[in-house]
Design a protein around this nucleic acid. Sequence first.
RNA 1: GUGGCCGUAGCUCACCAGGUAGAGCACCGGAUUGUGGCUCCGGAGGUAGGGGGUUCGAGACCCCUCGGCCACCCCA
Length: 424
Amino acid sequence: MNPIRAIRGMNDILPDEALRWREVEETAARLLASYGYGEVRLPLVEQTDLFRRSIGEVTDIVEKEMYSFEDRHGDSLSLRPEGTAGCVRAAIQQNLLASPCRLWYGGPMFRYERPQKGRQRQFHQIGAEAFGYAAPDIDAELIALSARLWRQLGIDDAVRLELNSIGAPEARARYREALVSYLAQHRDALDADSQRRLESNPLRILDSKDAGTQAVLDGAPALADYLDAEAAADFERLCSLLDAAGIAFVHNPRLVRGLDYYNKTVFEWVTGALGAQGTVCAGGRYDGLVAQLGGKATPGIGFAMGLERLVLLREALGVAPAVTAPDLYVVAVGDAAERVALAETERLRDALPTARIHRHAGGGSFKSQLKKADRSGAPLALVWGDDEVAAGEVVLKPLRGGEQRRLPLGELAAALAETMTQGH
RNA sequence: GUGGCCGUAGCUCACCAGGUAGAGCACCGGAUUGUGGCUCCGGAGGUAGGGGGUUCGAGACCCCUCGGCCACCCCA
């Protein structure tokens, strides 16, 4: 009988790696709170319609990547493929939009894609959304927040900011027409995927990886020339705010977004260190989405970062935290010693609440227990045998050099406190 | 959904004209009746991802399938 395996693309995160995740998550949570973002915890499942109406009917996500199913009442539900839609839904439903508000969330997202480096079917994002701010200063602040996060995570040298404006929907529609009519004349020079996108999603052709297609695009009309006046002015303002804040960026006029709800500002933080899936964080403005989902017209902007990719990047750069050894390893041989050791270890935990104490479990000889103590990486061991128990003492044994000594139980906590502070 | 490479012990990998599996590390035990790290000795651990085919004989060859990695696509 074959053992049951995890679902393809849905990974277990084991202790050593969970430690790295926790550091990223806690750093982000702390920073978001410091910028005034409040955490929201949102359902993993929403009505399928929420995603159809926000992300867009003709996107790959909605067409072929959602985990959708009918519940027992016959309603179509979907595992969330991204976080913004649910956050907007919650903001409308819970009446959070009366005045401007800043929210953040984290958790798993689901897309039925072929797994590869930096891409899995259950992946994890932390996202931030700001509602009710129409002016581009919030765009700059949100980007500054992310830039600060990269510094705190030690990856700022490995990521670059790409920025663009895709304008108002009407301007984009005019541009799309111009682009399609130009590209249609060069249809044969486009790669097969781009030919297909000519009908489905022509703007996505702009960020095609195909060299021939990119060559054709060199002569194409530029999105920047079609921007509405407001978007152009806001973009200029955003660039100057970023300059003033000392945040470097590159204007990538071919940067577009895969989700339909974006307008004006779009941006991505990308790295070359992760292979093909180099986008570590992406976002943009979505001024029409709240109204589109039935709320009072409210501008919005947000971004989402991919936890897997951030963790991978930190590992690649060697800035991930090392696994920490325990401070103390407790060894006890024999029933009486085990009884004393368990009780005394509990008292030690009272006296030294932050100490990482690994009490050996499961018995075994002195030899085997000390071998485990050594392997654990702990600098110190506590050893109990029949002799120590009879004498009311315990052996404090340095594992990285130094002589072991026996001391009365009453002196143990103080001796340990001293030894451990010396070690730090 | 498409393509390339790859699945042998817990891990990293060997063997291979096709003749019914081996090393290092890790694990367990001993040398050392209660003391780790070094050394030596021993032990356990594999239906060679799964299924089918060719063959006297398949881990090696063929097919299917599952899984992994990377890329396309998509995107965090």
